[in-house]
């Protein structure tokens, strides 16, 4: 196996492992558009990262975390619905990111790589930071699992029962921001939401508990990364989109199993 394929596989598998359970929460909390909006702000992070001279991954993580907390606050605004606010933040950040990127004379940012992912070009350094972040996220998720799930089912009930709901919401958004920054490297800004919600939705049909759904989603993601990279290698297809198409194939298969109205 070529070295670059091995690195891509390692990075992709790690991202799929965290995107599965996080995606399950995104689906349960009906936050698919939230995830989409967050990923759009990532380009601003890339541009700002180049501007102030830090690693794009660092810039992305910071900007997405800030955007997540900001969006969390915007949820309380009356008079405009959340989907409108999400659209505004997402596209304003995307536009701002494109402008800043265009003003950078010293570097030429490969926009296509960020928008559609460039998993075949990840280096060993990337693989290490992706796995480090993955281990951290899995540990945090396992620690918060009960409270996070309780707050997802009914926030008031959870609060009365002693769950710190505000803390759970903030932690969830921070972790989600991290996962977006990770996923961006694999499938690109425009397809991050796909990696979050499609494996989780595909896992629904075979799940009777929240935990099985989270684990199955991770499993579907891992299989899709493998299959996507293989087809990319074999037929010279773009890697990120191939991975997304593979998760979608599993999702379509799961439709046969889901009950109908």
């Amino acid at each position: 196996m070529d070295d670059f394929i091995l690195r891509a596989l390692l990075a992709g598998v790690a991202v799929a492992i965290v995107a599965g359970p996080l995606g399950a929460f995104v689906v349960w909390r009906r936050m698919a558009y939230f995830g989409g909006a967050l990923s759009h702000t990532a380009l601003l992070g890339v541009a700002l990262g180049f501007l102030i001279g830090v690693e794009p991954a660092v810039g992305v993580t910071l900007v997405v975390v800030v955007a997540a907390v900001l969006l969390g606050g915007l949820q309380n605004i009356r008079g405009l619905s959340l989907d409108t606010l999400l659209g505004i933040v997402a596209h304003a950040a995307l536009a701002l990111g494109l402008i800043i990127a265009s003003t950078l004379d010293s570097v030429r940012i490969d926009l296509m790589a960020y928008l559609f992912g460039d998993i075949l070009s990840v280096g060993w350094g990337d693989v290490i930071w992706i796995w480090g972040a993955t281990v951290l996220i899995v540990a945090v998720l396992m620690k918060l699992w009960h409270g996070l799930l309780n707050a997802t089912v009914h926030s008031d009930l959870a609060a009365v029962e002693g769950t710190n709901v505000r803390q759970m919401d903030v932690m969830f958004m921070v972790v989600l921001a991290l996962v977006v920054a990770l996923s961006m490297q694999v499938v690109g800004i425009l397809l991050v939401t796909a990696l979050l919600i499609i494996p989780a939705s595909g896992a629904r049909a075979w799940s009777k508990t929240p935990e099985t759904m989270a684990v199955l989603a991770a499993g579907i993601g891992v299989i899709a990364v493998g299959a996507g990279l293989w087809s990319s290698y074999q037929y010279d297809m773009p890697a990120g989109p191939s991975i997304v198409v593979c998760t979608t194939a599993v999702f379509v298969l799961s439709l046969l199993k889901l009950p109908r109205v």
Partner: peptide, 28 residues
């Protein structure tokens, strides 16, 4: 120790959860 019964509860259909699991969520 307070037991609370909220006015509304709607769990997203995408969240697979049995009655037993739901009960268990109430206690740490």
């Amino acid at each position: 120790r307070v037991g609370y019964m909220p006015q509304r509860l709607s769990i997203d259909p995408a969240l697979p959860i049995t009655v037993k699991r739901f009960l268990r969520l109430g206690v740490p």
